[in-house]
Amino acid sequence: QIFVKTLMGKTITLEVELSDTIDNVKAKIQDKEGIPPDQQRLIFAGKQLEDGRTLSDYNIQKESTLHLVL
């Protein structure tokens, strides 16, 4: 699992595989929060994550926290 922190300070827990693409992750956030993926920007280690890449491409591990910017 990974964590996604919103600017409102809310933390969302997502069940993911490290082979999941950023697209997949955004879809899971949409399922939980109702935010359309095209409005989501995910940040990790100061970098904006690109849709076609996977979590492992960015060296994101289990229990990592991503930041969601709208």
Results as ranks from 00 to 15, higher is better:
S19Q: 02
E63P: 09
L7A: 15
G34Q: 06
I2G: 00
L7Q: 15
E17I: 05
A45C: 11
E50H: 14
N24F: 07
E17F: 09
L49D: 00
G9C: 07
R41K: 11
T11V: 13
I35T: 12
F44Q: 12
G52T: 04
T6L: 03
G52F: 03
I43D: 15
G9I: 01
R41V: 14
A27I: 07
L7Y: 15
Q40C: 04
L66N: 15
E63T: 04
D20I: 11
T54G: 09
K5G: 14
I43Y: 15
A27F: 08
K26L: 15
S56M: 02
K32V: 12
V25M: 13
D57L: 07
E50G: 11
L55R: 00
D51V: 06
Q30N: 04
K47W: 15
T11K: 14
K5F: 14
E15S: 08
K5D: 15
A27N: 04
N59C: 10
D20N: 07
F44C: 10
I60N: 03
R41W: 10
I43A: 14
D20L: 08
Y58T: 06
Q39E: 12
G34E: 13
L18R: 03
L14K: 01
S64H: 09
D57P: 00
L66E: 14
I2A: 01
E17G: 05
L14D: 00
T65E: 15
M8R: 12
E15K: 10
L18Y: 05
K10W: 04
K28S: 12
K28P: 00
S19M: 02
D38V: 04
P36L: 05
T65Y: 07
V16W: 08
L68S: 03
V4A: 02
P36M: 03
D20G: 08
F3S: 07
G46W: 01
Y58A: 14
L68F: 01
R53S: 08
I29V: 06
K10M: 05
L49W: 01
I29G: 00
K32E: 10
D31K: 01
G34T: 07
A45F: 08
Q48W: 15
L14C: 09
G9F: 04
Q1M: 03
K32R: 09
I35A: 08
I22E: 01
R53N: 07
K5C: 14
N59Y: 06
E63D: 11
K10P: 05
S56W: 01
K47I: 15
D20S: 10
Q61H: 03
S64V: 04
L42H: 00
K5V: 14
K5I: 14
I22A: 11
D20C: 07
D20Y: 10
Y58G: 07
L42V: 10
K62N: 10
I12H: 14
V16I: 09
I2E: 00
D23K: 10
E33G: 03
K26C: 09
D31P: 14
V16Q: 05
I43L: 13
